[in-house]
Amino acid sequence: MPDAPLPSEQRRTIVGESLAVGVATGAYGISFGAVGVAAGLSVLQTCALSLLVFTGASQFALVGVVAAGGAPISGAMAAILLGTRNTLYGLRMAPLLAFHGWRRAAAAHVLLDESTAMAVNRETRPAARLGFLTTGIAVFVLWNLATLGGALAGTTIGDPRTYGLDAAVGAAFLALLWPRLSDRRSRVVAVVAAGVALGLVPLTAAGVPVLAAGGVALLAGVLSRPKATA
């Protein structure tokens, strides 16, 4: 990985792209804030999730379980299971970023779908670091401001279903899932996992169906044969 400093033009491009992603993702934090409050969390709790957990799908999973009447701790488990994908991003990013000590500890907090996506294809280490940090920090600032705004608005707008916010959450999960459905095994696992989860909804406490779907992934991964192209 070359370490040469960035030409200023390339620097501007990377910063511009990263900020655009930050704004788009951050704006979506408004709906997290509103959904969090609608699920019965206080404004402070909703904001704490965005500040401390800071990984969107996990946060939505937690409040989704709570909104459905599940125990908060099973929501936390669903959040952590979903958070495992950040470990994969980290394994991918570690050699590119080559952060150590406190820099690594700080970078870990902004290790996200977006910051990984904006850094993984850069050709030099300074470019990867710039893309990663600009995106990560932009998303962090805007996501948290938007969460606060959404949570405050959520306490005043009444029933969030009037605005279709409950449908927005399902759509957001689908949008995150979509790029992962490129091979047949993933599509099969997705359909089976959805089926298992729905089958368990009438039988178990809220939160359990989603966790059980994690078991489907485990089984499929252990049992299926290695891909020829893997």
């Binding site: 459905a68 299971l81 495992t84 996992a193 959805a194 994690g214 252990v222």
Partner: peptide, 26 residues
Amino acid sequence: RVADLIPVALLAALVAVQVWSAGTSL
């Protein structure tokens, strides 16, 4: 493989549960 499939399974389950469940009924 497992690490690859866990987000797929969880997100699919979250979509399904989020869209087609209300409490403990479908």
